[in-house]
Design a protein around this nucleic acid. Structure first.
Lengths: 258, 258
DNA sequence: GACTGTGTTGCCGAAGGCGCAACGTCTGCC
DNA sequence: GGCAGACGTTGCGCCTTCGGCAACACAGTC
């Protein structure tokens, strides 16, 4: 995911540029026409007409009468339609909600996508302030509980295809392949993965696998929150709930019926 | 300009068509190039190049090597960036102000916080006497219109986790669980909740739910004032406005599929 | 007032998008 | 098995339409 300032790969130029505008807005938040034009390396008027078209369709909205531009809610509609066809998310949502309610922490669902974990859905805990919205983000596999769970479902020989480098994000990040392999054995054995301060200091997460009818690990369910709230005692209380929730989702997807 | 059959007012033609493709995919799920071309009323090759560009950017993905097309996960990333900046209070504020202006009464927004309703925002009505500033206050769920709306969005089995005792504040406070449950059914059915003299004698409030993109009840919008001003006739005038305002806010948050 | 910044619009040349038609492939039907 | 029709895909070349230029309207700032 390099920045998409200019990608000659696309076919239709103006569409490609329009999508780049969406990307820029996603990255920078609120951006004016002039700045957009600079990012796209096109004339102001070009950028304006593109963003104006996007606005007419609700993918972008303008702050005030002559203000800057930002992403619009039309995208939410499209994204809703995207997840609607993913039956994992559909089946899991009510269970995620009750898990988020009973633990009070944020619940996520992630799948394997290329070489990272892609977060498909998120339900905030009871805390009114939502710490971060991971949905749509690609997150490193080796530094997250979700990633470890997803990796643990892979055949050992496929690991090398998916894992490239193992950069350290904190002092606790697992950076050695051998250590990661041992960790994955533990995950497989105990049926869940934990990550404390491995991606970000102060962030703790625990995840459990979601299986399909064939028993493959197709997704990962996680509970995450600040490390100070998710201590050992709280974790030992959360983990059984998490595992049960993950099993329930797996059941709904046909696992264990055979 | 060939035709204006579609909803087309945008500027850049190909971008507009590309967005129409996204809309079609959102509506129909999986669609082939030929069908897309028919929907857009363009040639197959045109539809192909557009959808191909979208695919190159991850907004659309293809099933199999030569299969149909559907919405892609790239949209989730964009939508994630959208929700990150979406704040209920901020989105609602202009609507609240106009609602307060047209009704002349106080407008509030509340969310569920642990076992009570937490008031996030308040816009005073035109009346000079402002009864109370509720912002930041935790208010009992069973004795307020906002509380009832928030409860009505909860799964039935979660009610008991949230509701503990049901103390009486006035003679009209609902104190029986069974009665409250029936009241919540009514709220769900009619789409709004009323509370007359239930928290405080002389205080009447009516509330309607605010939904997010997934359809969950994430907040509650209310109009409240002295009972002598909010009689039956005034209420029947306020309620449609209130519901419309709540729906408008929900729309801004991405609610309203299809 | 001038000056600089912003977002917005008319104009016209030409880049680029689009329709055409042909291709490769797959499925189903005789 | 072969044929017919469906599909998605691609090279070609006309002409639509996009986009650069420059002027405009408006808002701050000195």
């Amino acid at each position: 995911m390099s920045n998409a300032a200019d990608s000659t790969a696309g076919g239709v130029q103006s569409v490609d540029r329009a999508i780049t505008i969406l990307d820029v807005l996603a990255r920078l938040g609120e951006v004016g026409v002039t700045e957009l034009a600079a990012e796209l390396d096109v004339h102001k008027s070009t950028a304006f007409r593109l963003v104006n078209t996007l606005e007419g369709r609700g993918l972008v909205e303008q702050t005030g009468e002559r203000g800057k531009y930002r992403l619009g809610v039309g995208l939410l509609r499209l994204a809703g339609a995207t997840t609607a066809r993913l039956d994992v998310v559909q089946e899991a949502r009510p269970i995620c909600k009750s898990l988020a309610a009973s633990t009070g922490e944020t619940v996520n669902i992630a799948v394997l996508s290329e070489s990272s974990a892609l977060y498909l859905d998120q339900v905030a805990g009871s805390s009114t302030l939502q710490p971060h919205n991971w949905v749509g983000q690609h997150i490193p596999l080796h530094a997250t509980s979700n990633g470890k769970v997803l990796l643990s479902g892979l055949a050992v020989e496929r690991l090398d295809e998916v894992l490239h480098r193992l950069p350290a994000y904190t002092a606790l990040t697992i950076t050695k392949r051998s250590a990661l392999r041992r960790e994955l054995d533990v995950v497989r054995e105990q049926g869940y993965a934990v990550a404390v301060d491995e991606l970000e200091v102060g962030l703790t997460a625990v995840a459990a696998p979601i299986h399909n009818a064939h028993g493959d690990v197709i997704a990962s369910l996680s509970v995450s929150g600040p490390t100070f709230r998710l201590g050992q005692d709280k974790l030992s209380e959360v983990i059984p709930e998490l595992r049960q929730a993950a099993e329930e989702i797996s059941h709904r997807l046909g696992w264990g019926h055979r």
